[in-house]
Amino acid sequence: MSGVDVLSETLSSIRIGRAQACSVRQAGAWGWRYPSFSGSGFHLVTAGEAWLVTRGGPPRHLKTGDVVFTPAGAEHGLSHAPAALTGLPRAVREEDLPQPDPADVEFLCGAYWLDHGQVSPQLRSLPDVIAVTPDHARNPQLRPLLDLMRAHLAETGPGTGVTRPALLDLMLTHLLRQWLQENPDPLDAPIARVLSRIHAAPDHPWTVPDLSAIAGLSRTAFSERFTTVTGQPPKRYLTGRRLADAARLLRETDTPLSAIARRVGYSTEFALSNAFRREYGIAPGRFRAEAALSAGP
């Protein structure tokens, strides 16, 4: 899949989740293990240094500005020094954390929690843990964005439930774009053409013959190739894309369900409701109500 398609799919999948973030300060000897969870998470080192600890590789030194991203919520750890992941204590809630002053290191912790459904195949296809050192020369907009996000975490007034996810989205967009540029996947041109058409018009009544014709492949060859590239058969991918768009619209807008159904390719809200319930285990109306409740005033 092309880098643009990966970025688009990754961000679309992430935004279904409930965004949260907090600031952490540590001094002296410290270390935390973050268990696996359903969703995507990140850490941004805003001051000082730390070590990233994972199960699959050696500890990685992190400097101020570095970002750690777990696309599918994989277990990992942060520590003042290289350590074994199993030797680190489980992370605790923000209100239970020590907040020393002065601190040796400060970092932001954020997550998109999935209360319903599963992490998408697009996110699961990425490495368990991604570490990025922002290239401020190539992306000068990152520095003021990161400063704004750090300052915004201290705010608790009206509107933070809306602006905070928007800032997280922007930050991850820039960082993932940089990571994809530095770690390009081979471009599968026929499948990339199909994905572009699906993303541009998810409401179109696509059929496998339609999509295989766009790819210029036989139906059998197309289905096999599409499944290899995306991790899903064409029809399952299309359904997942439509329902992810519906979930995002339910979370971010007050658009009526009937209009959302038409916008994502379902003839009636009843049809969308049945498909949505199968995918996320919850009715669309209840999903929207829980999203509004978690966003706060």
Rank of each mutant, 00 (worst) to 15 (best):
T230D: 03
A275I: 03
H152L: 15
N274D: 12
V229A: 11
S79H: 08
V229C: 05
T268Y: 06
S38Q: 10
S2Y: 00
S273T: 15
P100C: 10
Y266R: 03
E279L: 03
H43R: 10
A27M: 02
A47H: 13
V105D: 06
Q99N: 14
Q178H: 11
F222D: 02
S212R: 03
E94P: 07
R288W: 05
Q181M: 13
P256I: 08
C109Q: 14
S12T: 14
E49A: 15
S79W: 05
L250Y: 04
E95C: 08
H61W: 10
T156L: 07
G31C: 07
P190H: 03
P158K: 01
P186L: 09
D66K: 05
S212M: 09
S12M: 13
L123M: 12
M1Q: 04
A103T: 08
A83Y: 01
Q99V: 10
R138I: 04
P233G: 12
V4P: 03
G240N: 11
V229L: 05
Q20L: 11
R251L: 05
L108P: 02
G159S: 10
T253I: 06
G28H: 08
I282Q: 05
R241I: 09
A81L: 09
G41P: 01
P205A: 10
L78I: 14
A154K: 00
S125D: 13
P209Q: 07
R219L: 11
A215W: 02
L153D: 02
D169Y: 09
A137D: 15
T54C: 14
V53M: 02
G157D: 01
T239C: 11
R90A: 14
I130N: 01
L250H: 02
P35Q: 00
A283L: 13
V67W: 01
T228W: 11
